[in-house]
């Protein structure tokens, strides 16, 4: 699903000149929002993530790319507290996040979405949105029993949710179960829900995966919008076109390590990246799932065949 989308409306100017010194993997940034050091995570002998040093620039859109199994999602999970690293520490806006549970990370203003959309199917779209709001008094079990204590806040949250839903063109679906939305609409809902908490950093795990091309344009605009509103965006993506169009900075991961980073055009034309990692898939969709699947299938077939012969 290679897309030829381009930002339409008055898209923000690409941020440039965010780094300090020569561009090498792990280059310091002038104004980093996340600084990670020596983060490693192994799964039974297999090193999934081994990031020596990386900084994510503030108020910019950073893309995290790399082949399947490069450790992007694992790194995402580590940064958001959904997984625990073997070693390493990292800070978010100067505050150390190592060992902080995921829900606290979210409360600090670092909100994420998931590769496989997690719309809460049997809640209405509006309830999905309301759940995103922070600091709700009525979420305390005892206060919940006394509606007059939270009703006013609830109305404010609802107004905000409706406003966001209108922006994401989901307002007509407000009373429907999230289960009834299309895949792309769920992606939109998940992003809108994340915005309910007024985050500082929005982390999107493959926001375009499985989205109907008709919706990619609007999703793209929404991501650019986030930057306009002063948020920082970090996203994992395979679609090179999209990365080129909207990212201010690209970080390339392979085999758990950061192998290259820099402004999109520089990274894409970096021969080392193309040869060693992008290979012939350059400029194509790197959604490697079918290949990977085939590989695994072959492995099983070989296992069975070898067995037959023996």
């Amino acid at each position: 699903m290679s897309s030829d989308v381009k930002p339409t409306k008055g898209s923000p100017v690409k941020s440039v000149d965010m780094h300090v010194g020569e561009i090498v993997p792990g280059v310091p940034k002038k104004d980093p929002i996340i600084v990670a050091d020596h983060v490693t995570r192994t799964f039974g002998g297999l090193t999934a993530v081994d990031v020596d040093h990386v900084e994510i620039p503030r108020n910019a859109i950073t893309a995290l790319i790399g082949p399947n199994g490069a450790g992007k999602t694992t790194f995402f999970n580590l940064l958001t507290g959904f997984d625990k690293p073997d070693t390493g520490k990292w800070t978010f806006m100067g505050k150390s996040l190592a060992g902080i549970p995921s829900f606290r990370v979210a409360r600090l203003g670092q909100v994420r979405t998931f590769q496989l959309t997690k719309a809460l199917s049997l809640l209405t779209v509006l309830d999905n949105m309301k759940l995103g709001a922070k600091g709700q008094k009525g979420e305390n079990m005892f206060v919940a029993l006394l509606p007059w204590l939270w009703r006013k806040q609830e109305e404010e949250i609802e107004a905000k949710a409706m406003e966001l839903l209108a922006r994401f063109k989901l307002d007509t679906k407000a009373e429907d179960y999230a289960a009834s939305l299309s895949g792309g609409q769920r992606k939109l809902l998940e992003m809108a829900r994340a915005l309910m908490s007024d985050p500082t950093l929005v982390m999107l795990d493959e926001p375009m995966a499985g989205v109907n091309p008709a919706l990619t344009q609007s999703l793209l605009d929404h991501i650019l919008d986030l930057k306009t509103q002063g948020m920082t965006v970090l996203f994992v993506e395979h679609d090179m076109q999209m990365v080129r169009h909207i990212a201010d900075w690209v970080i390339v991961m392979a085999e758990g390590k950061i192998v290259a980073e820099g402004p999109p055009d520089a990274v894409m034309s970096n021969p080392a990246v193309i040869d060693a990692y992008l290979g012939s898939h350059h400029d194509q969709d790197l959604g490697e799932d079918p290949d990977q699947e085939k590989e695994n299938v072959n492995a099983i077939k070989e296992l069975l065949d070898a067995d037959d012969k023996s």
Binding site: E293, N296, V297, N298, I300, K301, L303, L304, D307, D308
Partner: peptide, 23 residues
């Protein structure tokens, strides 16, 4: 040691993958 047993383990491991590989 048997083909069927290996297929069983493959199904335990990942049903869709096993199905895709013709099990």
């Amino acid at each position: 040691r048997t083909r069927l047993g290996k297929a069983t383990r493959a199904v335990s491991d990942n049903v869709s993958l096993a199905a895709a590989s013709g099990i």
